[in-house]
Design a protein around this nucleic acid. Sequence first.
DNA 1: CGTTTGACTACGC
DNA 2: CGCGTAGCCAAAC
Length: 123
Amino acid sequence: MWSPPNPREYNAQVWQIVERIPKGRVMAYGQIAALLPTPQGVDDETYRRLGPRWVGAAMRAVKGVKIPWWRVLNAQGQISLPAGSDSALEQRHRLEQEGLIFDAQERLDLAAVGWQPDDESDA
DNA sequence: CGTTTGACTACGC
DNA sequence: CGCGTAGCCAAAC
């Protein structure tokens, strides 16, 4: 994954969306990328491919930023951090504490707990 | 200075 | 439904 033309601004936009995710709900990297406008100087084609990874980059940059970063998963409903890593364990713990349940394959049912800004059934 | 390595996805088997 | 692969850039090794 690389970084968008203006990382600082892009990250801010990503975090702005992440902080709106209700407790007990989650969003995928690609889903968040799709909500943001294609950064200037980048064609839609390129953004379509790299957007999700840039969102991942924004999440990596989250240090000390107060947002529910653990509610962001990959499109498969799985935690995208290195399995077994401290951060991965922390993410899973926080999600389970919000009542979310992982299946035998360490996945969450996005169709059930996935969320988007216009989703009325939040909270 | 060549390789490896990323908080990703869609797509083809 | 699971697994491998392409896409594609820069920085760390």
